[in-house]
Design a protein around this nucleic acid. Sequence first.
DNA 1: GACTTTATATATCAAATTGATATTATACAT
DNA 2: ATGTATAATATCAATTTGATATATAAAGTC
Lengths: 180, 180
Amino acid sequence: MDVKTVCLGMLTDGPASGYDLKKNFESTFGHFFAAGYGSIYPALSSLSKQGFVSCEQIAQEGKPDRKVYQITEEGRQFLLKALENTSPCHKIRSEFLATMCFAHLMQGEAIEAVLDYRLEEIAKYREMFRQLEAESMSDWEEGEKFVLGFGKAIATAMEKYITENRHLLTEEPVAKTAAV
Amino acid sequence: MDVKTVCLGMLTDGPASGYDLKKNFESTFGHFFAAGYGSIYPALSSLSKQGFVSCEQIAQEGKPDRKVYQITEEGRQFLLKALENTSPCHKIRSEFLATMCFAHLMQGEAIEAVLDYRLEEIAKYREMFRQLEAESMSDWEEGEKFVLGFGKAIATAMEKYITENRHLLTEEPVAKTAAV
DNA sequence: GACTTTATATATCAAATTGATATTATACAT
DNA sequence: ATGTATAATATCAATTTGATATATAAAGTC
């Protein structure tokens, strides 16, 4: 599943512009499947060329025309086929974990700073989840609720693990010859 | 932190060829920071041009020359500077979660298949962690142990969440007008 | 004995993606 | 006044992905 397919999926919820989709990516989707303008706009032109979306151009004063995309029947069929893939991947790209693998080359303070930063980021996620639940959860599909819960569960597990195990990285190791 | 920096970090463990580094990415690193030949080889040539690694070319019969790279003092300095970044990111790209967001467009059986596949993948991870611990953990740096533990904790949390919440996606929702 | 897969080793390339930047106008703060 | 946020598009170099090409030996399978 690429950015094109995800955009198509978002359009099943109603017509939207590239700008609208970007907001979608920023608020919720982006936390497990990121995309920027650099991939959204090319995705929409490509979908348009393939006939999977139609585009209505709306003139505006002072701003560029608003291009509102709508999924077509062919687009819907393509999406349903794409969703039949029973082995979608789940990948992590973590500069955080890569950095921690090299902790032995770092100063204790730098390690602490990295861990603190990660905990802050996790706290931000949790706050975001909390707000989403309070504000707009009533009209969500079950799938979206499942995904939000998944995010919460992982965030909790990460926070717990880091808090309980950070001492492994920052305490001075016992000298290996101590027992001799 | 890009592939170049991670390769440099791996070379602090001793000289290695691109092929060797790829094996490293496959066995452990790849599970949180993937890289293929298409990024490893260009990374090594680039590091070589910058003087961060030196290269010894070893002739072999029947096979291409083996190019063994070694980190230089300048490379080590560059790496240490890169590790001073106190806000390394941790990103997820999950076709799995994206698919689940569109579960309402899917057949119940397809949803089950996707969830089962994910659970199988997690089981594979856990088995890999188990093997790594049994085989080669004694000579690991603390950082590597921390990262392995992190992986295990997340895998456990994902498995638990999916098992306990999959019914949300596959059970028929109660009709919304039932209470009327 | 024939055949297939795995391991050794490099390299390249099109396509996708990232992250930043450009453009232009309104509106709201400081 | 000056900066920042919002609305809206678009482009681009650099990076990364995933696949493919090349060539040989060893090991496993039928």
